[in-house]
Design a protein around this nucleic acid. Sequence first.
DNA 1: AGTAGCCAACTAACTAGTTGGTTTGCCGTT
DNA 2: AACGGCAAACCAACTAGTTAGTTGGCTACT
Lengths: 170, 170
Amino acid sequence: MAADTPRRILDAAADEFAERGLAGARVDRIAERAGANKQRIYAYFGSKDQLFDRVVEDRIEQLLDAVPFDAVDLPGYAVRLWEFNLAHPSLVRLLLWHALERPGEQLAHSVSSHERKVAALRAVRGDDGWPADRLLGQVLALVHGVTLAPGPDPEHVRADLHGAVSRLVG
Amino acid sequence: MAADTPRRILDAAADEFAERGLAGARVDRIAERAGANKQRIYAYFGSKDQLFDRVVEDRIEQLLDAVPFDAVDLPGYAVRLWEFNLAHPSLVRLLLWHALERPGEQLAHSVSSHERKVAALRAVRGDDGWPADRLLGQVLALVHGVTLAPGPDPEHVRADLHGAVSRLVG
DNA sequence: AGTAGCCAACTAACTAGTTGGTTTGCCGTT
DNA sequence: AACGGCAAACCAACTAGTTAGTTGGCTACT
């Protein structure tokens, strides 16, 4: 029937893994959510573990495409990244599961993307003053932290985050 | 024999849960790590789920005792909290697992402790200027973020964290 | 006698992964 | 239009291993 079966499986698996993690997810449930049957999962992705890896890579790519880095406007970038996280809580959960259940495994996409960000930042700000990698680390730490400990009022959080990054940059 | 069997079980369970999470942990493995046998686990703690809750509560208490809040020296508090996290990575993992596998469940200890912190902060800084809860939120966000995305050099991270919180406070 | 503990086997349910047989739509050939 | 092959997909049962939780019988200390 539909030629998009692998896509449907990936999406269903993303939901299931985001909710329950790798160990808690059930292959039968993924098949049911995808409106497909189990053998298709094993035919396309081999195993539960491989499916998990594919899902995480797939979603990371979507994140990196959706929130382009802006070395000139770091506070704006931080806010946009936080907003994306706020709008896609299941992606945040998926990345946390990955960090916990695949300890020490770095994702190729995010590593190379990070290197590009540092280079762009250095090009804009020059080599003097704060090292670019440490500045970027502080900005991302703020975004991650704010994402994990969401304040009650998003408007305040947005303003606070923007202000905090502005102070870091200035 | 030893009357500290419940304690040994709690410690072994903390290790197992920190490594594998609730869904990934195995009761038999906990018993083996504790040098005890399974029935003692069920006799003392009832079920795997209840054991998980007890472990998390137990460790949260240890954290709150080990790192007392200091409303006067927020940068120092932030650094001490980060250092504790750095020295106890398994506790960080345990809390992340708890956040993921028990969504929406707040821990009574940490909620009341948080309220005490906000009150102490308000008492020191007065009601003018930045609201105490938002300031504390920013500080904790920084610590959490730095903990999750550890820079390569701890000395730099320490200095950056101290500086960032100082700028927030000032 | 009673309490805390150990050992080992057991149950009942669950789960990743497999297999056999069947259906459906597509595409080139006749 | 009719035919034959082919790949994607479905259904359902099955295997084999795992796992939370239980039970019964035994030991040791107090």
